[in-house]
Design a protein around this nucleic acid. Structure first.
Length: 843
RNA sequence: GCCGCGGUGGCGGAAUUGGUUUACGCGCACGAUUCAAAAUCGUGUGGGUUUUACCCAUGUGGGUUCGACUCCCACCCGCGGCACCA
C-alpha cells in the first residue's frame, strides 16, 4: 500500500541530512538562480495558493539540478509588517515572538511539501544582521541626494495611524485595514524613484517578462511626451505659468486655463485676484477632499474663475480666462493645463458649465466620405455634442492650417521653442516613493537630527566640524547620517506598540533612545523615529541570498558575480507595480554605485513569471467568512504531499486563476496509487519489443522537459498519465523504463519517486540521477494518419507511410470506397496535399 | 471609458506555423469483484437525427481561405487593472 505518511517524512529528513539542495558557492557547474517571492509569515499559516508557485518552481529547480546545474533556490521571510504589529497592539505580545512562531509554522509547512529550498541561506528581514543592510542602503540613497524630507499631504489612515503610499490606497481605503483614507500634512522621507523612470521603462526591453507585466509597469510609470508652454498673464503682473500638453496641435483652440488649487502661483497672483475670498474657500474645500474624490467620475466639473486675472494664448495672442479646479492635480505635469474644449472631453464638459467658447481646430481625416467613429458632430445650431479627441487636419490655426496633427505638433513646437515660449518636456505619472512609516514594526531610519548642525548649515558653513557633509546632508539641513560602523540601529523594545495620538511612531516615546549625540558635532541630537515601509526589506533580498552570512558587506562582489542576475523570478501579478518596480529601482541604484558588479547588468531579473490565484470551490475567493479555506496541512494529512503537488500542478494552466476541486485531488492520488502498484510488475530482465512503447517513452521525455520550462505543468502531468496507462498494459515492465519514468515523475512527486527508486535497488538518491534525454531518432514517426478531406471536411482517415508522396497519397485516397462515394461524378477542381497531415479534394 | 486576459462537453481543461475539435483528469452510466458497501478494475460518455450513415457544435454575427478554436472586422459576456493624467 502506498502510504505517504510513512515515506514523506523519511525522505525529507534524508534530503536534509545529505544537503542535497545546497547551492555551491564554489562549483564549476553552470549556475541557475531560481527565485520565488518570499512570504509574509502571517499567523494563518500557508494557504494552498502559496503552494502553487512553490511547487512549480520546486519542480523547475529539481529538474535543473538533475540537469547538473548548480541551483540556488532559497527561501526567507518578509516579516516586518502590519498584521504582526496589529497583533502585538492587541495582545501585547512582542512582534519578535509572534514572528518567530509564525516563521516556524510556515517553515514546517513548507518542509512538509517536500520543497527543495536551500535552508542554509534562510534570511529574515527583521533580523538585525539583515536590516543592518536595509538601513545601509537607505544611507546610500540619502548620501547620494536621492532621499529628501518634505512636508506633503499624505494619505493618512486614521485607523492604522500611518501614512500610505498612493499605491497602497485601494478605492480610497487603506489597503490593509480598509478604513477610509484622509489627508494629513506630514514630514516624510521620500525616495526619488522618478529619477529612474526612464531607465525603468527602457530596461523592460531587455528582460523576459510576460507582456502584460511589461505593459502594467509602463502604464504605471506613465511616460507622457509633449511640450511645456508659457502662458503670460495679462499686463497686471509679470507672472506667467507653465502648462504641459501632449497635444500642442490643439493650442489654437485653447480658450481658457485651469490651475491646480495647490499651485504656488496663486499666492503670487493674490493681489490681482478680485474674488480671492471665494477662491480661498475653494482651496480650503479641496484640501479636505481625497484625491480619489477629486478625480472621481463626477458629472460636473467644478472650478472657480479667478476674477481680474486673464492669460494670453501665445498662439492666438487672444486673452483667455483663468480658473482653478480640483480636477487638475499639482503632482502631474506642471499643475496647470490649457483648456481645449473642442478636443478634450473633460475640457468640453468644463467649458459647457462655464459657457466658454468652443473653437474647433482639428478636423477628422475623412475616409471615403466617412467620419471616424469617434468624430464629433455639429448639430444644426452650431453647437458641439462632444469633443473630438483624435488626430486630424488643422483648421482655425493660422499658418498651420491644413497640416496633420503629428506634423503640426512639431511645427508649432519649433515655432514656440524658437520664441522661447515653449520647450519639449516629458512627464511621468510615477510619483516619488514615500519611505516613512510612523510605526513600530519596521527598520528604524538611521538618521539623527542635530539642531546645532542645522544652524551651521543654514549659515552656509560648508564644513561641519571637520567633515564635509554629504549630498543628503546638504539637501536636508541638520539631518546627519548614523556612521556605518554603528549600524544596525536596532529597534528598541517598547511597552506600547501603538503609534502616538499625533501619529508619531511609538519610538518617539522612548526618550533614552531618541536623545543621542550628533555623530558630527557631538552635541545633543535626536534620532529619527520613523521606520521604513515593509517593502524596504524585500527590495534587495535576492542579493542577500547570494551571500547571506556576510557581516562586512551586503554581499561580496565575487558571489554577486557568481549568482546574479536571477535567472527566473516567479511572483504574484499583484506585486507588479509595487515590489517588482521598486526592487528594480533599488537594484539599478545599487548597480550605479558599484555595489552590484557592472558585469551583472542593469536588470536584476532575467525572466519573470506570474502564477494564477487559487480560488475556493465555485470560483470565489477563499476566506474565513465563506468558510471555504483549504488548509494544505489537511490535504497532506489525507492524501500526502505528493498528491497535493501533483493536483495543484495538474488543475489548470499555471498562470491563470483556478478554483479548487476536492474531487480533482482524488484523481491525483489515484494516479500516484497506480504508479505505486506498477512497481510490483517490474522485471529486471524483461525487455520491450514494442517499438511503439519506446517511442512513447521518448516523446514523453521531450514533452515533460519542454513543458516544465514553459510552465505547462498540467500537460506535462497529462502525458505522464498517458505513459502510465501504457505501462500498465505491459505484462512485465522492464526496470529500465520504469526507472526512466520515475525520473520524469520525480520533480512532481519527489517522495514517492525516491521511495520506489530505492526499493528498486538504487543506492543513490534519484535526484542525483541525470535527467533523461530523448532520442530524436526514436520520436520520428514512420507512419501517420492521413486525413482525407472533401471540401475541407474530414471524410476518411487512413494510416500510411510518413514520407508518402502527393501522387501516391492522392491515389491512395481516391481508392477508398468512402471517398469514391463522396466524389461520385464530380470533378476534382483542386487538390491540396499537406505532408504528414492531410489531403483535401475540392469538388 | 481605456488597457490586459479570457469565453471549447455536465465540470477543470487539451489542441505545432490555420490542417483529425474535445487529449488527460473529474463526474456520470453500465458491468466485474463483494453477503453488501467503499475501494479497485473494465466498457461507454459533445448534441441531434431518419443511427452501416449523416447533420450541427469552440460566446454572437460577418469576412478571408480548399480548410478557422486559431487570422481580420463588428458585437456580447466574464475576470483583473487603471481612470477627469492634460
Amino acid at each position: 500500500m502506498y502510504n505517504p505518511k510513512k515515506i514523506e517524512k523519511k525522505w525529507q529528513r534524508y534530503w536534509e541530512e545529505q544537503d542535497l539542495h545546497q547551492a555551491k558557492d564554489f562549483s564549476r557547474k553552470p549556475k541557475k538562480y531560481i527565485l520565488i517571492e518570499f512570504p509574509y509569515p502571517s499567523g494563518k499559516g500557508l494557504h494552498v495558493g502559496h503552494c502553487r508557485p512553490y511547487v512549480a518552481l520546486d519542480i523547475v529547480a529539481r529538474k535543473a539540478r538533475m540537469e547538473k546545474f548548480n541551483v540556488l533556490f532559497p527561501m526567507g521571510w518578509d516579516a516586518f509588517g502590519l498584521p504582526t504589529e496589529n497583533y502585538a497592539i492587541k495582545t501585547g505580545i512582542h512582534p519578535i515572538t509572534v514572528t518567530k512562531k509564525n516563521t516556524a509554522f510556515f517553515k514546517r509547512q513548507q518542509k512538509s511539501l517536500g520543497l527543495s529550498f536551500d535552508w542554509n541561506r534562510e534570511i529574515n528581514t527583521t533580523d538585525p544582521n539583515y536590516y543592518k543592510w536595509t538601513q545601509w542602503i537607505f544611507l546610500q540613497f540619502f548620501k547620494k541626494g536621492l532621499a529628501y524630507k518634505k512636508k506633503i499631504p499624505i494619505n493618512w489612515c486614521p485607523s492604522c495611524k500611518i501614512g500610505l503610499a498612493n499605491e497602497e490606497v485601494i478605492d480610497g481605503c487603506c489597503e490593509r485595514c480598509d478604513a477610509k483614507v484622509t489627508k494629513k500634512e506630514k514630514e516624510q522621507w521620500i525616495l526619488k524613484i522618478t529619477k529612474y523612470a526612464e531607465r525603468l521603462i527602457n530596461g523592460l526591453d531587455k528582460v523576459d517578462y510576460p507582456e502584460r507585466v511589461k505593459i502594467l509597469e509602463k502604464d504605471w510609470i506613465g511616460r507622457g511626451e509633449g511640450y511645456e508652454v508659457v502662458f503670460k498673464f495679462k499686463s497686471q503682473t509679470s507672472e506667467s505659468i507653465n502648462i504641459f500638453t501632449s497635444r500642442l496641435d490643439t493650442i489654437f483652440g485653447a480658450t481658457y486655463l485651469v490651475i491646480a488649487p495647490e499651485h504656488p502661483v496663486l499666492e503670487k497672483l493674490r493681489p490681482q485676484i478680485k474674488n480671492f475670498k471665494s477662491v480661498e474657500k475653494y482651496i480650503e474645500k479641496t484640501k479636505g477632499k481625497l484625491e480619489r474624490e477629486r478625480i472621481a467620475k463626477t458629472k460636473e466639473k467644478v472650478g472657480i474663475r479667478l476674477e481680474g486675472i486673464s492669460a494670453i494664448n501665445p498662439a492666438t495672442g487672444k486673452e483667455i480666462p483663468v480658473f482653478i479646479a480640483d480636477y487638475v492635480l499639482m503632482h502631474y505635469g506642471t499643475g496647470a493645463i490649457m483648456g481645449v474644449p473642442a478636443h478634450d472631453q473633460r475640457d468640453f464638459d468644463f467649458a459647457r458649465a462655464y459657457n466658454l467658447p468652443v473653437i474647433e481646430v482639428i478636423k477628422p481625416y475623412s475616409q471615403k466620405g466617412k467620419l471616424p467613429k469617434k468624430a464629433y458632430l455639429i448639430v444644426s445650431n452650431g453647437r458641439f455634442k462632444k469633443a473630438y479627441e483624435g488626430e486630424g487636419i488643422l483648421i482655425n490655426s493660422g499658418r498651420f492650417n491644413g497640416m496633420e496633427s503629428g506634423k503640426a505638433c512639431q511645427r508649432i513646437g519649433d515655432f514656440l521653442v524658437q520664441k522661447e515660449i515653449a520647450k519639449e518636456a516629458v512627464h511621468y505619472k510615477l510619483r516619488d516613493w514615500i519611505f516613512s512609516r510612523q510605526r513600530y514594526w519596521g527598520e528604524p531610519i538611521p538618521l539623527i537630527f542635530c539642531e546645532n548642525c542645522a544652524a551651521e548649515m543654514r549659515k552656509r558653513v560648508s564644513k561641519i566640524k571637520g567633515r564635509k557633509p554629504n549630498k543628503g546632508e546638504s539637501l536636508n539641513p541638520g539631518w546627519i547620517t548614523v556612521p556605518e560602523k554603528d549600524l544596525p540601529v536596532k529597534l528598541p523594545r517598547v511597552k506600547k506598540y501603538k503609534p502616538t495620538e499625533t501619529g508619531e511612531s511609538p519610538l518617539a516615546e522612548i526618550k533614552h533612545w531618541v536623545n543621542t549625540k550628533c555623530p558630527k558635532c557631538g552635541g545633543s541630537a535626536k534620532r529619527e523615529t520613523d521606520t521604513m515601509p515593509n517593502w524596504a526589506g524585500s527590495n534587495w533580498y535576492y542579493l542577500r541570498y547570494c551571500d547571506s552570512k556576510n557581516d562586512k558587506k551586503l554581499a561580496s562582489s565575487k558571489l554577486l558575480r557568481k549568482w546574479m542576475p536571477v535567472d527566473w523570478y516567479n511572483g504574484g501579478m499583484e506585486h507588479t507595480t509595487l515590489h517588482l518596480l521598486y526592487s528594480r529601482f533599488v537594484y539599478k541604484f545599487l548597480w550605479d554605485i558599484g555595489i552590484v558588479p557592472k558585469s551583472v547588468g542593469p536588470e536584476p531579473y532575467k525572466k519573470r513569471t506570474s502564477h494564477g490565484m487559487i480560488l475556493g470551490e465555485g470560483c470565489v475567493k477563499m476566506s474565513k467568512s465563506k468558510g471555504n479555506i483549504i488548509n494544505p496541512d489537511d490535504v497532506i494529512k489525507e492524501y500526502g504531499a505528493d498528491t497535493l503537488r501533483v493536483y495543484e500542478m495538474f488543475m489548470g494552466p499555471f498562470e491563470e486563476a483556478i478554483a479548487w476541486n476536492s474531487k480533482g485531488v482524488k484523481g491525483a492520488r489515484r494516479f500516484l496509487d497506480k504508479v505505486w502498484k506498477l512497481k510490483d510488475n517490474v522485471n529486471q530482465k524483461s525487455r520491450i519489443k514494442n517499438q511503439g512503447f519506446k517511442k512513447l517513452v521518448h516523446k514523453t521525455i521531450k514533452k515533460v522537459s519542454d513543458d516544465i520550462e514553459h510552465l505547462k505543468f498540467n500537460t506535462a502531468i497529462s502525458c505522464l498519465m498517458i505513459l502510465v496507462n501504457e505501462i500498465e498494459k505491459q505484462e512485465n515492465i522492464p526496470l529500465k523504463y520504469y526507472s526512466l519514468f520515475l525520473t520524469l515523475l520525480s520533480p512532481f512527486a519527489p517522495h514517492l519517486s525516491e521511495e520506489i527508486w530505492s526499493e528498486l535497488g538504487h543506492k543513490k538518491s534519484i535526484f542525483l540521477h541525470k535527467w533523461p534525454k530523448y532520442d530524436p531518432e526514436l520520436i520520428e514517426e514512420e507512419t501517420f494518419t492521413l486525413v482525407i478531406q472533401i471540401n475541407g471536411k474530414v471524410r476518411d482517415k487512413i494510416e500510411t507511410n510518413i514520407n508518402i508522396s502527393e501522387k501516391k497519397a492522392k491515389k491512395l485516397a481516391l481508392s477508398q470506397q468512402k471517398i469514391k462515394n463522396w466524389i461520385g461524378r464530380n470533378k476534382i477542381k483542386k487538390t491540396i496535399f499537406v505532408p504528414k497531415k492531410l489531403i483535401n479534394f475540392v469538388i
